[in-house]
Computed example of a mutant assay.
Amino acid sequence: MTIFNLGSINADLFYRVPHLPGPGETLSCSSHTRGLGGKGANMSVAAARAASRVVHVGAVGPDGGWAVERLMEYGVDTRHISRLDTATGHAIIAVDDAGENNIILYPGANRAITDPMIAAALAEAGPDDLFLFQNETSGQTEAATKAKALGMSVAYAAAPFDAAAVSGVLPLLDILVLNAVEARQLEAATGRTLQDLPTRHAVVTLGGDGCRWIDNGAGTERTFPAFPVKPVDTTGAGDTFTGYLLAALDRGMPMPQAITLGQRAAAIMVTRVGTADVIPDLKDVQDARLG
């Protein structure tokens, strides 16, 4: 089986700062690095490192060849990443000494993906495959509709959060992944609890408090405790969790085991500085002593 991921590809520009800047504040940073990022790229790398076959559907600009090559190095199928005239997306990421971050995002080529690009990729997909997407590209609703018509399982990571975007795709979803803040925003925007949503599974990441799984098909709910680690950089942890979660489901693992595997991967991720380039591989995750 294959995960087809309609996802963003960014250059992540990291700046280490003593604290996150406030309004009107100018800060000097102690270091600067460039890495591969974007929620889509992060999730593709995580799923590939979790031993799934991953086809990334996306776009870069003339300056993005290095990002495509990096994805290939990490085991992602890049045949459906288009090269466009629009600049590659990028993110400016400030990380403080406590590991917290804030991010300024320029979407670039991620928002220039067209329906024919998506259709060409999904022409290779079938009902045994999984379709994943986030809110950092164009073509989301159209792609999810095509995937659903093919009988694929459809998963959505609801970030960056936009109530209209999430509401527009909810009827198409089998799996919704979001964090605690996004969950509250969605419930406020729709006037519905997660238990009332049409999606079969809702998985809510709670940071240091663990993870919450709502199975609306069975009418059950379960909370998973977090693995205790000391974070140095939380950037990409949620993406790592999602990639590992879906890879585990794609490989036939039950949801509780898939969530636990995703939590282990995310726990390792927050002890590393960076995004896609430092996502742990499956052996790292299985061998790690956590908690």
Rank of each mutant, 00 (worst) to 15 (best):
M1D: 06
I3P: 00
L6A: 04
N10R: 10
A11T: 11
L13M: 15
L13E: 07
F14R: 01
V17M: 06
H19D: 04
P21I: 06
G22A: 14
P23Y: 12
P23T: 13
G24P: 08
E25W: 10
L27M: 11
S30M: 03
S31P: 07
S31A: 15
R34W: 11
G35N: 08
G37D: 09
A46E: 05
V55H: 06
H56K: 09
A59L: 08
G64D: 04
L71A: 07
E73I: 08
E73R: 11
R79D: 12
R79L: 08
H80L: 11
S82L: 11
T86G: 10
A87C: 11
G89H: 08
G89E: 04
H90M: 13
H90T: 08
A91V: 12
I93D: 02
I93Q: 02
D97G: 13
A98H: 14
G99R: 07
E100R: 13
N101A: 11
L105F: 15
G108Y: 07
N110F: 11
T114S: 13
T114M: 14
D115F: 15
P116R: 09
I118N: 01
L122G: 01
P127Q: 00
F131G: 00
F133T: 15
F133L: 11
N135L: 09
E136H: 14
S138T: 15
Q140M: 14
A144C: 07
K146C: 11
K148D: 00
V154Q: 01
Y156V: 04
A159N: 14
A164S: 14
I175F: 09
L176F: 03
Q185N: 15
A188W: 12
A188P: 06
G191T: 07
T193K: 12
T193D: 10
Q195F: 12
P198I: 01
H201R: 06
L206G: 04
L206P: 05
N216I: 05
G217W: 00
A218G: 09
G219Y: 06
T220F: 10
P225N: 09
A226E: 03
F227T: 01
P228A: 15
V229N: 02
K230Y: 12
K230M: 13
T240W: 00
G243N: 03
Y244N: 03
L245I: 08
A247T: 05
L249D: 00
L249K: 01
D250C: 12
D250I: 01
R251Q: 10
M253D: 12
M255K: 05
M255T: 08
T260P: 05
M269H: 07
V270G: 03
V270T: 06
G274P: 04
T275V: 11
V278P: 02
D281K: 01
R289W: 14
R289T: 14
